[in-house]
């Protein structure tokens, strides 16, 4: 799949923002006043920035409001509804803490649940696609949720918790890659089943339908990543897991914590690029590109 920068930014930063909002909502002793303002501002900026980036990817962004209508059937619509509900609920909760020094725990819990729900619905947009076997996997939502929780914990300064979560994220990521590498083969879809000609012999794409490229090839048949995938996976793991853990185990300092966060986010961005770039859409079979 085409690793569009807008979607990589959206899924990474909104996941991080909603992760932070989750921990703020669950916190029994949340920050108040100006400190609360700063924390919530970062959470909202990341979540909203991510959503704005995703709107960039639309062909007709001026009609984006229509996307709230199909929550009964569409995961993308559910994501939009869930995101707005989470932001409104957390906004009310934050307003209480920042301006009135009032804490309303049930509102925080509801906002936290909706924040995680938004990350879950985001992950389901990809998980539901049978056409991309690498994504069509129960571990995909777990990976997104754990990444969001780990990033949020790191952002909100929960050192011990983020250490544990980052370890879980790293393990999940490795297992997800291993399963994903065999997913297309395990799906049973081949050029033989795609054309129905498989029973007659070995099928080979002889001639494409056109001499130029097209939307399908640009969007769904991205093959550049394969060459450097191994190296990039190593870099992603070091940046998102190994380096942050080493930095967090060092004596606590705001600079090391910041470096751990930056390293983690860069690692997640790399892994998210691979998430798209390595994903094989079955339509590529018709073009002999798998």
């Amino acid at each position: 799949m085409n690793p569009a920068p807008s979607i990589i930014a959206f899924t990474t930063f909104s996941g991080l923002g909603f992760g932070l909002l989750f921990w703020l909502g669950m916190d029994p002793t949340p920050p108040r006043g100006w400190v609360a303002f700063v924390f919530f501002f970062i959470g909202f900026a990341l979540a909203l920035g991510g959503l704005a980036a995703s709107a960039q990817h639309l062909g007709r962004p001026e009609r984006a409001l229509k996307a709230f209508s199909q929550w009964r059937s569409s995961w993308l619509s559910r994501e939009a509804c869930c995101a707005v509900a989470a932001l409104v609920t957390m906004g009310l909760y934050a307003a209480g803490l920042v301006f009135a020094d009032v804490k309303i725990p049930p509102l925080g819990w509801l906002g936290a649940a909706l924040s995680l729900g938004t990350v879950f619905t985001t992950s389901m947009i990809y998980t539901q696609l049978k056409t991309v076997p690498r994504w069509h996997n129960r571990l995909t939502p777990l990976l997104f949720l754990s990444l969001s929780l780990a990033g949020g914990a790191l952002l909100s300064g929960r050192v011990t918790l983020s250490l544990a979560l980052i370890l879980i994220v790293g393990a999940l990521q490795v297992v997800w890659w291993r399963i994903g590498d065999k997913a297309l083969q395990a799906s049973g879809t081949t050029l033989g089943t795609a054309t129905g000609l498989g029973d007659g012999g070995r099928v080979r794409a002889f001639e494409p339908p056109h001499t130029g490229t097209n939307y399908l090839l640009r969007e769904m048949v991205y093959v550049v990543a394969r060459r450097h995938a191994r190296k990039l996976r190593g870099i992603a793991l070091i940046l998102m897991m190994v380096l942050p853990i080493l930095l967090l185990l060092a004596p606590f300092h705001h600079i090391t914590a910041l470096l751990a966060l930056l390293s983690h986010v860069t690692g997640v961005l790399t892994a998210r690029w691979l998430f798209f770039a390595e994903a094989e859409h079955v339509v590529g079979l018709y073009y002999g590109k798998r």
Binding site: L58, G59, K66, L76, A194, E219, M220, H281, Y286
Partner: peptide, 13 residues
Amino acid sequence: IGCGLCAWACPYG
């Protein structure tokens, strides 16, 4: 809205 998700969901292109 041109989000392209339906094209992703279609196995046939």
